[in-house]
Structure formats: C-alpha cells, structure tokens
Design a protein around this nucleic acid. Structure first.
Lengths: 350, 350
DNA sequence: TTGTAGGCGTTATCAC
DNA sequence: GTGATAACGCCTACAA
C-alpha cells in the first residue's frame, strides 16, 4: 500500500519554507512572486530553498483569494470526432500558451450530461467555457448563461443567443458556394445536394451557398436534386440510390459533410458507379479520412485550428475585458477554402 | 462591456444562504451535505433556499480543506491521434461517472511541454494522473513520481519503472501472434514484418509474437523479411519497394501498426500490386481509418475503451487505497483481438 | 440540534 | 524590508 501525499495533503507550503528560512510566510509569498519589496539577498535565498524543498504553489488556494482559476472548461459531444478533436487540441494549445488549463467534459449529446457538465464547471469555477456541440438547446443555453462567465460556441448553433454567449464558426454559406462553384466551373449543370441533419442552420446556410452558385451560373435549382441525408455515413449511403433513381441524373453532388460524401463513395463503389467520371463528389469539413479514402475526397476545408484558437482568444479577451471583445464581435465567422482531390478531379468541359 | 461574475467572484456562498435563512453557516454546510445533525425541517428549508439562490459549492474551497480535488490529470502527446482520442474519451467517461473531472494537457511530445504539464497538474493538485504517450523518458518519469499521486501509463513504455508508476497496456506479444497466426492459417509461408519506431518495446513484443507464430508453424524466420518502418505512414510507403526487391518475395506482411499498413497499401495501389492476392496485409490498432481504406485493413483491435476505463479505475482505486491496487497489479495487460477484413481476405490454401 | 472557532494555502493590507 | 493579520469559501471539531 502506498502512502500518497494526497492532492493537497502533505505538500510543502509557503509556511514550511518560511519556517526553514526563518522569515514570515508573507515574505516568502513576496519573494516567490518576485516582488521588489524584498531584499534581493533574502529573495534569492528563499527561491533557492523553495526549489530545494520541491515547493509547488497550490493553485486552489491562490484561486480562492485571486478570484480566478486560470482554467477554462471545454464541453464537447465527443472527443472521438476527429473534427472536434482538432479543435480541442487547438484550444488546449492556445490556452496553455496563455497560462490557462483546460477541463474537458464530454456530453455524448445527452441532455442530462450536458447540464451536469455545466454544473461541474461551475463548481470548479472555470473562468470561461467553450462549447463544441452541434446544437445547443435553450435549456442547455440557459444553464450556460447562469455561469456568468464568458461562453463561446464553436461551430455550434444556439437556438437562442443570449447576452453572455458568443460564437465563432465557419462561413457555411461561403463554403457551400465554393464547393458548388467548383462543380459548375468543371462543366456540371445537374448538381445535387445531399443535406445533413434536418433543420440544422449550418445545413441551410451551406445549401443557400449552393443555390447562389447555381443562380450565378444561370442554372435553375431543381428541387428533385435536393436529397435528405443525416450528416452521418448512412445518410450518404442511402442518398446514392436516390440520386440514381432520378430520371434526369445529376453528374455531380455536393454533400453536407465529408461523412455523408464518404458514405456516398462507398455505396458508389458497391454499385459500380465510377467517381468522378459518372458522378463528381464534393464534401465539407476535410476530416483526416477525406484524403485517405479512394478516390480521395474534394472538400471544403474548415480552418479547425484557427477556429479553436480564435474561440480561446475570444474567451480570454472577454475575461480580461479587452475592448475588442465588446458587443459587435459577438459572432465571428471564418472562411473555409476548397481542396480539390480525386472525387471531383478532371474537367467536364473538355 | 460585460460584468463577468468572475470565477470565484460574486457567487453566492454558504454564508449568504446562512444570512438569508437566519442560521449559521455551519448549519448550512451540514444541511447541504445531508448531515443528519440538522433538523429535517430546517434542512429542507435551507436546501430549497440554496436552489433558489442558485448556489453552487466552490470546489476550490472544498478541495482546500478536504485535501482532494476530485480531479485527475491526463497528459497526451496529441488528442488528434484517433487512438488516443478514444482512450481519453473513455477516461473522461469513467472519471465523470465516478465524480471526477479531467484536466487535459497535450505535450506534442516536446519534453519541455511534458514537464510543464506535470508542473501545472501538480499546482492544480490533481488526485492522480494518466499518461498516454508512446514513450516516457526517465526525466519525465522522475517528474511524474515527484507528484506523489498515483500515475498510470496507458500503452506507454516507461524507461524506468518506479514505485509510484503503474500501467495498463495491450498484450503486444499476443497481438503479434494473432496476426501472424492468421496469415499462417491462410496458407502463407513467406511472411514479412514491417517494424515501427526502432528500439520501441511494443515493437519488439509484437515481433516476438510474430516469431512465435512462425516457430509454431515450423517456418524459419528469415531475417531478410524484417524490414524497418517508422510507425507512421511514410514508413509503410517505403517498406513496399523493400519487400518487392527481395529475391524470394513474401506473400504476406504483418505491420507494426495500421498507419504503417495503410502507407503500404497506398504504395501498393500506385505500383499496381494487388492486395490481398499479391500480398496480404495485417495491421495493428484498428484505427477508424482501417475500415474505410480500400481494401479495408485486417488488424489487431486494441481494446481502447477498456484500456481507458481500466486506467481510470486503477488511478481511483489506488487513490482510495483499495486492496486490489496493491503491489502485484502494477502492470495490467489486456488482450486484443483480430479483425479480418479485405486486406488479408481469402485463403491461400484452396 | 445549532453556533463558535479554527484552519486549509494563498494574497493583500496594514503597521512597524 | 518585513511581519502580523485578515480575508477567500468551505468543513469540522468542540461547545452550548
């Protein structure tokens, strides 16, 4: 059986050092924080002693008096989603760089766990919260606001934006436009859209971008070319037969996201539909899988790292009351860019 | 400009409730912790009041007196690795279930960041630490031990195991055996092994399993069939030509991990080498990519969720001084299992 | 059953 | 320059 020191247990404290150095604990505190109100000599002596004794300041105690924990909470549906993982990585990196730690909570999209997570983060007195969850319900949102700390949503849609909630997300409209425009430029006229989860604002925005690209090219939007998906692989798999069943088949398809596109690719392989010659495919997100799949997937790249970084900076700026962070910047949107790979390679207009 | 409450700032405290209820703060404390030393009536009154006032206990303050933070630190190289992501997800889940929070720190494998992370976790007074990093250097390890809290390594090799360090990992030897045995059973006699990073103990164990399977089948291990890799995709890409250059070509290959195997698959596609008919391929890990790649990859499945869960339970058991956790259980190893997909499909012995 | 007092490890405000 | 002393929010003897 080991004798763990215990979290706050037997660690050496400022008082221990004071005793060893023959000074008061306040002098030690000052010396360790580099205050100029301590004689240079004693300061050095104390600092050396602290190192020797293996002193590590107790962040709990410090937070208690300082009123800040130097910690931000990150709530995600699942860290298993490579898309979210990259955002979280980026959040953790920039937080770390600015001296903040990250408490991670995954909700699995279960409402009880969402609010439980918020409860915990509240108790831990995080200085701010970043939420990466596709949809943020009103109840969830209300709980977040009650924290009274800055909350930033990343690529999430809140059903009801409140005064304490900010967000950063990709420009879905622009992304949808880019993808479709690319297909138009390649000579396609019959371009389908496979949507994501129903009544999702991201989905609507991407579709709106798709529509605009068609409009600019003078192509009539045929409602028959809009087929429903789920945002997951199965949705793409089921979308293919739906497309093939159309009397006037499309020659290209833009999918709500990469998983949808990959599902479609798999179905195509089984049915013997050749990509891109029979059907050009473009996705959205640029998950790692996109470049490994065969044929590799053209897609709209989300600036995941920048999304995470920006969200973190936003929380910290809000925290420190920076001028920038006020009012107007409540919703930042970033541009994605198109990456052309094999699934839409080659031009139609030879 | 918003007026954030601040982490520990303006929150309602036990004293506020006491004042509102006309009792002392200790009574409130007792009532809220469900103590039986409070009259049922006042207890209920206080609990109601607390809810109304939006009270949330300050975990910092509580930790300070209790000596435990109900928090564990998780250090990873990168959360971007899907393998690690799944382990972390599992850690977070089981920790959450047992009332613990998770502080996440990613080190990017940079030594300074590794020790910086440990420093932070120490300051935050985490109750335990889980490390998921391929190799744990002696210096890093020394820092970990200094925490004097339970440390559990997941699928990591420590250069120098100390009294405060425990580990849970997959049975690499068994996995290597399973993979190779499968190829042997399919009729292969010339089976190559593409290794991972040099002098990595996991690698050696997997290769040892490979050797045993060959031995049992009465096949001489030809050193020419051992080709070096890197554990990453490039290593697999470079391994293929090396295999093809051999005078007596192998008909099957077992790769240190999936990324290596996938690199090999990609190279094969470019060279026109047909998988599995020209060369059967088996990987290790079962990363998500493995089932999406074409042809899909046969592999040894690591029980990622169980690894994470077990590691967490180990930390918590050690913390609570459970009998199980003592001495002998310092290194738990779990069995993986083989999943056969297309890359090794079909039998050679018809 | 309830209140009072002390302390957890810091920082901060006074005096000296 | 330095040392008492008082917070921060909570728990827990010890008293009443």
């Amino acid at each position: 059986m080991h004798a763990w020191a215990g979290a706050t247990g037997m660690a050496v404290s400022i008082k221990d050092i004071a005793r060893a150095a023959g000074v008061s604990h306040s002098t030690v505190s000052r010396a360790l924080s580099g205050s100029s109100l301590v004689r240079e000599e004693t300061k050095e002596r104390i600092q050396l002693l602290a190192k020797e004794m293996g002193y590590s300041p107790d962040a709990q105690a410090r937070s208690l008096v300082m009123g800040r924990t130097q910690t931000i909470g990150v709530v995600v549906t699942t860290i298993t989603d490579p898309f979210i993982a990259e955002i979280v990585e980026s959040i953790e990196n920039t937080a770390q760089r600015r001296g903040y730690s990250v408490i991670l909570a995954s909700s699995q999209s279960e409402p009880e766990r969402e609010i439980a997570a918020v409860e915990i983060l509240h108790s831990k007195r995080v200085d701010g919260v970043i939420v990466a969850s596709s949809r943020v319900g009103a109840y969830y949102q209300a709980h977040l606001e009650r924290l009274r700390v800055p909350v930033v949503l990343v690529n999430s849609r809140s059903e009801q934006r409140g005064p304490y909630t900010f967000s950063v997300s990709v420009d879905n409209h622009h992304g949808g436009y880019l993808a479709t425009r690319h297909l138009v430029d390649a000579g396609h006229r019959r371009i389908a859209y496979v949507s994501g989860a129903p009544d999702h604002s991201d989905d609507l925005a991407r579709m709106e971008g798709y529509r605009q690209a068609l409009r600019e090219a003078g192509i009539d939007a045929d409602p028959a070319l809009l087929v429903p998906g789920t945002g997951r692989i199965g949705g793409g798999e089921r979308a293919l037969p739906a497309l093939l069943a159309l009397s006037d088949r499309p020659t290209a398809v833009f999918c709500y996201n990469d998983m949808t596109a990959i599902g479609l690719l798999q179905a195509a392989r089984k049915k013997g539909v050749s990509i891109p010659s029979d059907l050009a495919v473009v996705g959205f997100d640029d998950i790692p899988l996109a470049s490994f799949v065969v044929p590799s997937l053209s897609t709209v790249v989300q600036p995941k790292r920048r999304l995470g970084q920006r969200a973190t900076e936003m929380v910290l700026d809000l925290l420190l009351g920076s001028r920038q962070a006020k009012g107007t910047l409540s919703n930042v949107t970033m541009q994605g860019k198109l990456t052309i790979r094999e699934s839409s390679g080659g031009s139609r207009a030879q």
